[in-house]
């Protein structure tokens, strides 16, 4: 069972998304605000990241976008990371995060 999912996206030189989802309360804290999430969103989020590699590597740009997703369970902590190099469904992931709003 997942305890938390943390997402950190650094867009160039500033933190653009800083999100933590705590289970089973299924609410999230994003950029200093609390939002409620539904099961559909959480299922889709997990489906989106479940086949991701742990490390996508680094590009050769300066201040390029970097993402880090940390999934914590009782057993372990898994980290997915990339800087300038992203999973093929990364835009879908960003679009999904964009659905979190008031």
């Amino acid at each position: 069972m997942i305890n938390t999912i943390e997402v950190i996206i650094r867009s160039g030189i500033f933190d653009s998304i800083h999100l933590i989802i705590s289970y089973p309360r299924e609410s999230c804290y994003m950029n200093n605000k609390i939002y409620t999430l539904n099961d559909k969103f959480l299922d889709e989020l997990v489906r989106t990241i479940r086949l991701w590699d742990n490390e996508y590597g680094y590009d050769q740009m300066i201040d390029s976008e970097e993402f880090k997703v940390i999934v914590t369970t009782n057993e372990k902590e898994e980290i997915f990371h990339g800087k300038g190099i992203f999973p093929s469904n990364y835009q879908g992931f960003k679009r999904l995060l964009g659905e979190i709003h008031d």
Binding site: G12, M61, D63, E65
Partner: peptide, 11 residues
């Protein structure tokens, strides 16, 4: 498309 787009240098 990004909500907060990046700023960078691409050498």
């Amino acid at each position: 498309k990004d909500a907060i787009g990046p700023t960078y240098v691409c050498p």
